[in-house]
Amino acid sequence: MPRTDARRGALYALIALTLIWSYNWIVMKQALQYSGPFAFSALRYVFGTAVLFGLMLLRRESLAPPPLKPALAIGLTQTAGFQALVQLALVGGGAGRTALLAYTMPFWVVLLAWFALRERPSARQWFCLAAAAPGLICVLEPWRGLGGLRSTALALAGGLSWAVSVVLAKRLFARGTVEPLQLTAWQMLLGTLALVALALLIPERPIDWAPSYVAALAYNAVLPSGIAWALWLFIVQRLPTHVAGMTSLAVPITGVLLAWAILGERPDAAETAGIALIAAALLTLNLAPRRG
């Protein structure tokens, strides 16, 4: 596939991913009224894994596993580590703003890719990071409180865990023998085993199998936990590591806009300024002319 077509496909995938994951913050907020966070996380990924393997069968793709050690490392960091750390942060702190701390991932990715993959950011990319960082702070508004030091540290660790998985996946894709759907399904299977163990070990309230909870679980199984993670690894495969990381910042700002439209949570002046800064950084990153 030509480089321009590959990048265009990745950007289309990013648009779909942004809409799916942004709306899912609203769905998860509603679902946690009916069950504990670990039970919901385990169930959504159990069903999400089944969806991915079913999709592989429909596409008549080989079910052969990718190299197991890298797949296990990605599963533990992307599926289990990221999800468990963010859910723990949500339990002890303010839901929306604490969850958004996970989107410090792009900043971790830039540093990790520089050292692990030798992808040194250009001056323009440093400029975009410098513009996006205060934008994210404005959206988070830490001066209003983030649920305490423990919750903040857990959410930041979740972002770091996700960033590690991005670098590990990029390194595995560099071998040229793994497809995004194949890797997504197998890493999710391995990571889900860890989430199921956590759900069994950590006491939580019984699940209320209300129709709203079943609908939220079905949505998560098919889209956010299944297809969206396959789209994410497709993006990681097609785009430079730091670009893939930075473009994920579209999710929290779209989430703020959807919360405004659906829940009536109108962004204040600081959030509006933050959205503008992040949007400008993303436009500069993806639309500016490229050399070479």
Rank of each mutant, 00 (worst) to 15 (best):
A215I: 12
S248P: 12
L112Y: 01
G94P: 01
L58A: 13
A216Q: 08
L217Q: 03
G81P: 07
G159A: 15
L136S: 04
P252S: 07
F38H: 02
L90A: 10
L146E: 02
Y12W: 15
L223Y: 01
R175V: 05
P267G: 04
A270W: 11
V222P: 02
T104I: 11
G96H: 02
A130K: 06
I278H: 06
A50Y: 14
V110W: 01
F38L: 10
A259M: 13
Y45L: 12
G92R: 15
A288Y: 09
L287F: 10
R3H: 09
F127Y: 14
K69I: 11
F115P: 00
P67S: 11
L117T: 05
K69V: 14
L43W: 13
A99V: 07
P67N: 15
L183K: 05
A50P: 10
S122Y: 09
P240K: 01
C128R: 10
G245L: 07
V51R: 06
L90H: 04
V214T: 14
W108H: 09
L146M: 07
G94T: 12
G54M: 06
A73N: 05
I262N: 12
F53Y: 05
G145M: 13
L239K: 03
R120P: 01
E271S: 13
E204I: 03
L85A: 07
